[in-house]
Design a protein around this nucleic acid. Structure first.
Length: 557
RNA sequence: AGCCUGGUGGUGUAAUGGUAGCACAGGAGUUUUUGGUACUCUCAGUCGGGGUUCGAGUCCCUGCCGGGCUGCCA
């Protein structure tokens, strides 16, 4: 690490390494709660934590922060591991759970009681809230605050044994009911929960709170820098308090601003609603900003990593524009995606001067950005299809595509000129009759005449018909939470976020592609085979992202 | 209202008292068998007011604005 222009966290860590703090060690961790799927915001944190460990020759642990069994599921824990691996990071044998430390945490709680620093409180939720005070008024001490240590010890023991109802008692730490930081007003560190835990089963009837578990878990794992988002800033004094009072290794908590993206949400809670209320197809719906959804949509891990690098790191609130994400995606896909031909809305094209029964094979380049990707054969015959929007009866000035009397190039094939438009009774265009120039095979002619327009096509003798799904942003508003009084983010859902096309045609070689391999349908966009599509009879293709289209953009108005 | 925290082009992020830079987006152009890609050029910024200094985005004071905090969630 010698480059300058480090972000503020890497600056701190460089200085710590230089001053031999923690003997020069760097050890981070990524600590998700298994109560939902990982999303793009988590990707930022994963890239940060694992990235820093890499850059400083350190380590990064994966820790499932499972202190609240009422919200957590093994399905989520499984998905988290899959997603972190897919993103390209490896925790080796360092997968931990906060629940691994329940026994130690319990002993530390007993220690605090013995030292007169913690007590069992019997205030109800409501009473505790009243005692806490408000933002402007100090709180009042709990009537149980000064009870005998032995009594607290006994009660805590019986809480653990499951003798009391949920909510009836808590273990609180004695700090300061007058603190301007509400988190310091005798926070609860243990609550009664008669809940099976995915990892510890029915062993525990009491569970530690986040504040009592997180810092100590970091400490036990020898974490040096505990990176978290801004909302934990007010918890740092507590984090520090426990490390100091327990006299244990004291990692440094550093907060950074979480990632926000416009036109979407970045909250597990809201995503859960979308899933539960069936506004989407599940956590891995290709419209979701979850890693599993983006993967299914066709996003590559490298594009997401590049994005996480480019968004930067600071403490100020931010909303990143979707365009940056799409830029990273296209930049990556452009280099690696093989090209294929396909048409979304087929329009029949017949070449009148082409032999009736002839079918020939032409060479098509797989990836102009990567010669090593080679070429493939595509068939060509008298009856083809082009995309309906590549023809205009009454074209504007700079329309380069097909129109009556204009010559265009069929990519990798021949020059054709439209001679006649065949219409149905309703006036709809049914077919184009064209003539081709046999001299233009492959896309060029001996006279080297210029043909500005090049369009894609498919051959009727070999094309296949997959279902194609086009996606648009999930929400209509840049900030989905920006709603009228009495409404919520759901009112901003984009009703057109999914369009399914049933009559599209693509070249047959699509079936040669491996699952999850990205490809480009030339001039249309990047696609991938939907991971849930049953091949090959009912092939489903997801459009990952459309091509940049400067023509469409300019002509929007 | 109290406490904490933050304010640099449209968006994001650098510059740590010494030429305000980079990326995305926007605009113009060159190349092109993808109206793609690549390349070139371009538009545009230090929240306001005081102060310290030869010199302030940076330090000090003050005002304004944004975000967070009153779970036995994390």
């Amino acid at each position: 690490m010698e480059e300058k222009n480090l972000d503020f966290i890497r600056t701190i860590i460089s200085e710590d390494v230089a001053s031999q703090k923690n003997e020069g060690r760097v050890h981070t961790r990524f600590p998700p709660e298994p109560n939902g799927y990982l999303h793009l915001g988590h990707a930022k944190s994963i890239c940060l934590n694992f990235g820093i460990a890499n850059e400083f020759n350190g380590l990064c642990n994966l820790r499932l922060d499972d202190t609240n069994p009422s919200a957590e599921k093994v399905e989520y824990a499984r998905a988290i591991q899959e997603d972190v691996k897919w993103l390209g990071f490896d925790w080796d044998d360092r997968l931990f759970h906060a629940s691994d430390y329940f026994q130690q945490l319990y002993e530390w709680a007993v220690q605090l009681i013995n030292e007169g620093k913690a007590y069992v409180c019997e205030l109800s939720f409501e009473e505790m809230r009243k005692h806490r005070g408000t933002l402007t008024e100090p709180g009042k001490n709990s009537p149980y605050r000064e009870r005998e240590r032995s009594e607290s010890l006994d009660l805590f023991e019986r809480m653990k044994a499951g003798e009391f109802e949920e909510g009836s008692k808590t273990l609180r730490v004695k700090i300061d009911m007058h603190s301007p930081n509400l988190n310091m007003r005798d926070p609860v560190i243990y609550r009664i929960l008669h809940q099976e835990h995915p990892e510890t089963g029915d062993k525990w009837k009491i569970y530690p709170s986040y504040d009592f578990a997180h810092g100590q878990s970091d400490s036990l794992e020898g974490i040096t820098h505990s990176l978290c988002t801004l909302e934990f800033e007010h918890h740092r004094p507590l984090y520090d308090w426990f490390c100091q009072n327990l006299q244990i290794h004291h990692p440094q908590q550093i907060e950074f601003a979480r990632l926000n993206l416009n036109y979407t949400i970045m909250s597990k809670r809201k995503m859960l609603r979308l899933v539960e209320e069936k506004h989407v197809d599940g956590w891995d719906d290709p419209r979701m900003p979850t890693l599993s959804g983006m993967r299914r949509r066709g996003y590559t891990a490298s594009a997401i990593r590049s994005f996480c690098e480019k968004v930067g790191l600071a403490k100020r609130e931010n909303v990143i524009e979707m365009e940056l994400l799409e830029f990273c995606l296209r930049e990556d896909l452009n280099k690696k995606a093989h090209r294929r031909l396909g048409v979304l809305e087929p329009l029949k094209l017949t070449i009148s001067n082409y032999p009736d029964d002839q079918v020939e094979e032409l060479d098509a380049v797989n990836n102009p950005e990567d010669p090593s990707a080679g070429t493939r054969k595509i068939t060509f015959s008298k009856h083809l299809f082009i995309d309906r929007n590549d023809f205009m009866e009454d074209p504007p000035k700079k329309f380069f595509r097909m129109a009556v009397g204009k010559e265009v190039r069929l990519k990798y094939a021949y020059y054709v000129t439209c001679k006649e438009v065949v219409k149905g009774e309703d006036g709809k265009i049914m077919e184009l009759i064209c003539e081709y120039d046999p001299q233009s095979r492959g896309g060029g002619t001996p006279d080297e005449r210029k043909v500005k327009g090049t369009i894609q096509w498919v051959d009727s003798t070999t094309a296949i018909n997959p279902e194609i799904r086009l996606y648009d942003r999930l929400f209509k508003a840049p900030n989905p939470d920006d709603v009228e009084e009495g409404k919520d983010f759901l009112s901003n859902l984009n009703p057109d976020s999914l369009t399914s096309l049933s009559s599209a045609l693509v070249e047959k070689s699509i079936t040669d592609l491996k699952a999850a391999e990205p490809f480009q349908l030339e001039r249309i966009g990047y696609f991938t085979v939907d991971s849930k599509s049953k091949s090959p009879d009912s092939l489903v293709l997801n459009r990952t992202v459309a091509m940049r289209d400067s023509w469409a953009k300019k002509h929007l108005k």
